[in-house]
Amino acid sequence: MIIQQTIENKLGQCFSPLHLQVENESHKHSVPPDSETHFKVTLVSGDFSGQAKVRRHQAVYKALAGEMAGGVHALALHLFTPEEWQQAGGDVPDSPNCMGGSKKDPAMQAKG
């Protein structure tokens, strides 16, 4: 839970969010129990106004550069302006299930 809290703190400081939710989705992937490697971030901030989605993603990755270099494998980013968040009705899509990478996956073993 340390990495999740760090992500929440950094994003809270960098973006003055109206809404911020960080979910650890590592349990949906082929990682050891209690891992902190895969996260879903929902962030609503006026800072994103006028920015394309790519610029928003770049800003979040810049804010979390240390975490990305230190063990976070994946971020599912859902980044909204307040207006977009209102139009979406506060709905965020579910993350897809892991599609592989498991040592138990016969397709992955055949490649090894």
Rank of each mutant, 00 (worst) to 15 (best):
W85A: 09
K104D: 13
G89H: 04
Q51E: 09
G90M: 04
G70Q: 10
A59Q: 11
D94W: 07
F48W: 08
A59E: 04
V41S: 03
H19F: 14
F15L: 10
E36T: 05
A52V: 14
L20A: 07
P82R: 06
M1P: 14
M68I: 08
S49G: 04
L64D: 05
H73R: 12
M68N: 05
N97S: 15
S16L: 04
A63L: 03
E83R: 07
P106E: 10
E83W: 01
K40E: 14
H19T: 12
S35C: 11
P82H: 05
Q13A: 13
S35R: 00
A88W: 00
C98L: 04
E23L: 15
P93V: 07
K103F: 11
A52G: 08
M108A: 10
G12F: 01
A69R: 11
H57C: 09
P32K: 05
K53W: 00
S102K: 05
A63K: 04
A76S: 12
Q5E: 15
V72E: 06
A69K: 09
V31E: 01
G46I: 02
V72P: 11
Q13T: 12
T42K: 06
V92W: 05
T6D: 14
N97C: 13
K62S: 15
A65V: 05
S45M: 05
V54N: 02
T37D: 03
A65L: 04
L43V: 07
V54F: 11
T81Y: 01
T81D: 10
V31W: 06
V60L: 06
S45R: 12
D105R: 01
V41G: 03
Q51F: 13
W85Y: 07
Y61E: 09
A52S: 09
N97V: 05
K111R: 15
V54C: 08
S16W: 00
S102H: 05
V44I: 02
Q21V: 14
H27Q: 04
E25K: 14
N9W: 03
Q58M: 09
I3G: 02
V41A: 03
G89W: 01
Q4H: 12
P17Y: 00
Q87L: 10
N24Q: 07
E8D: 13
T81G: 06
V72Y: 12
M1H: 11
K10T: 07
A74L: 10
K62F: 02
F48A: 12
A59D: 07
G70S: 09
R56W: 02
K10I: 04
V60E: 03
S26G: 09
Q109H: 08
V44F: 01
G112D: 14
L64N: 06
L20T: 14
M99K: 08
V41H: 03
R55C: 11
E83N: 08
H19Q: 10
H27N: 08
L11S: 03
K62R: 15
E25S: 07
N9F: 07
S30M: 04
M1C: 07
F15R: 15
V54H: 00
G100R: 00
E25N: 12
S95V: 15
K104N: 12
G89I: 06
C98M: 02
G12Q: 09
M99C: 10
P82M: 01
G89Q: 04
P32R: 05
E36F: 11
A76E: 11
G90S: 05
P96E: 02
V92Y: 04
